[in-house]
């Protein structure tokens, strides 16, 4: 597989603030690569540097094996960009907007017309072709935004937080669309701070914090990097202090809390944790209700590596 993007020791400073600190990244052809990190971790700065929208202080960026510069127009023709904010003309219709942005890449009128129609079909905006953006709902606007970025059939598509402030239905629609684009052969770079989205679509993930890549791999690889195991949740009407203490002493127990008649027990990696807990309840004759078990999330990975939550940063 060919390397599509290679970033080496990238440093970007804003005065005293280090936005990117010797950041490295390698993205292979055909991947859906997720850049996951809290707000301010450097995701958008990485994308801006990658697209030559920002000058950087040190390092080098290669796209399709060639150095990326502001005037690398032969490389830009194979890149599609979808920003967080909807970037379209209010006074142009859906079709005219897609035509305009496609026309910045494609000169042949006939080919452009075909590509515009394909993009409209792809985002299912056929019924809204003659609509002005102001007449579209939030979800439809996002689809238009995507259509404008992909109409010229780029080999590399960069999506910078495209689902911020989008309703769940439209979000699923967008994520499904990204998977389809990938199936059609495009390499995708997807930045977000929503770990669920990354888990849902990305083949490989880089977790970013303070301008650094703190972990890279598939979601399984990332989860295996940490000691955190499953979290078991049990509805228990009554538990005594001494019983809680005994549960906390069971093997592999990492953290425990009991609130509103619900017991949460987080384990480090190990086998038979659930059986051991239920055995204890039976021995102590403790009545219990619903039992659920959750595998570690990327948030747990982030928490263990950085000591802070991925959410609410």
């Amino acid at each position: 597989m060919q390397t599509v993007v290679k970033i080496n020791n990238l440093v970007k400073r804003y005065g005293d603030l280090v936005a990117l600190d010797h950041f490295n990244l390698e993205i292979m052809e055909g991947e859906i690569f997720g850049l996951l990190g809290p707000n301010g971790s450097g995701k958008s700065t990485t994308i801006h540097c990658l697209l030559s929208l920002l000058e950087y202080d040190k390092g080098d960026i290669k796209v399709f094996g060639e150095e990326m510069k502001p005037d690398s127009y032969h490389l830009k023709k194979d890149i599609g960009i979808i920003m967080q904010n909807v970037a379209v003309f209010d006074r142009l219709t859906v079709e005219e907007n897609i035509d305009y942005f496609c026309g910045l890449y494609i000169k042949d009128k006939k080919k452009k017309k075909e590509l515009v129609q394909e993009a409209i079909d792809f985002v299912e905006l056929n019924d809204f072709k003659k609509f002005y953006p102001k007449k579209l709902s939030g979800g439809l606007l996002r689809r238009l935004n995507i259509a404008c970025g992909i109409a010229h059939k780029p080999k590399l598509i960069i999506l910078d937080e495209p689902t911020v402030a989008v309703d769940p239905q439209s979000r699923n629609n967008i994520l499904e669309g990204i998977k389809r684009l990938n199936k059609e052969g495009a390499t995708i770079i997807y930045t977000t701070h929503y770990m669920e989205e990354v888990e849902q679509i990305c083949t490989r993930i880089a977790i970013m914090d303070k301008g650094k890549s703190i972990a890279v791999g598939t979601k399984e690889e990332l989860k295996s990097m940490v000691k955190t195991g499953e979290t078991i949740q049990v509805d228990v009407p009554k538990l005594m202090e001494n019983q809680l203490e005994q549960i906390s002493k069971l093997p592999h127990t990492k953290k425990l809390s009991y609130e509103n008649e619900v017991l949460h027990v987080q384990y480090t990696k190990g086998k038979h944790n659930l059986i051991r807990l239920l055995d204890y309840f039976r021995e102590q004759d403790i009545a219990f209700g619903r039992v659920t078990s959750e595998l570690p999330t990327l948030n747990d990975v982030f928490l263990e590596i950085t000591g802070k939550e991925l959410r609410d940063q």
């Binding site: 697209l51 929208l53 502001p70 127009y73 032969h74 830009k76 023709k77 890149i79 960009i81 920003m83 904010n85 909807v86 970037a87 379209v88 003309f89 942005f101 910045l104 890449y105 404008c148 970025g149």
Partner: peptide
Amino acid sequence: DVRKRCICSS
């Protein structure tokens, strides 16, 4: 954002 998109074009 429109400007960014235009700068990123070929």
